[in-house]
Amino acid sequence: MRSNTQASARVETPDTAVVRGPGDVEVWLSVNGAAHRLAIEPRVSLLDALRDRLELTGTKKGCNQGACGACTVWVDGERVLSCLTLAIACERREVRTIEGLADGQTLHPMQAAFIARDAFQCGYCTPGQIMSAVALLKEGHAKDDSDIREWMSGNLCRCAAYPHIRSAIRDVRDGKTGD
């Protein structure tokens, strides 16, 4: 693992207009509440930094061109695509991934609902689906099924588990704890 983890979330960045790169530069990332110092090129995506440098492989690489949603994470609380985000542009921002969702050994209610509702088959899109689904509820975009469909449309599931994904989201929205 080529990173240092520190308990402190203090993140230092160079001054304005300094040219950094194109070779390896020091980049501080705050991920799931922990600060990490990386030596990466500016062209490295947040997705690759998470997976290849921080070994946080829960976030998946599907299309790598912003079409599938498998790489969905939160930056400063908003769901975004980590494949189209440069890691270096996330300094001083708070990144949250699927690994940062559970409370210790207790799954997030959405994770539990996905299991209870069998909301996946192959599971590859699931981390992105869950990061979107939790954000969706926080945004208030789960009024009804058509609202959920529209606001989950950025997360493709080639196994077509969509009906069960919607069931899981409805359960959490309605405060049901699963079967």
């Binding site: 960045t13 160079p14 304005t16 207009a17 300094v18 040219v19 950094r20 790169g21 194109p22 070779g23 530069v25 090129e41 500016p42 062209r43 440069l86 270096i88 542009a89």
Partner: peptide, 19 residues
């Protein structure tokens, strides 16, 4: 992707001048 360098700017004048 080809290698790139990166700068961060904080005001419009610097942004315009730099690019």
């Amino acid at each position: 992707m080809r290698p790139i360098s990166y700068s961060r700017v904080a005001d419009v004048g610097t942004a315009v001048g730099t690019v």
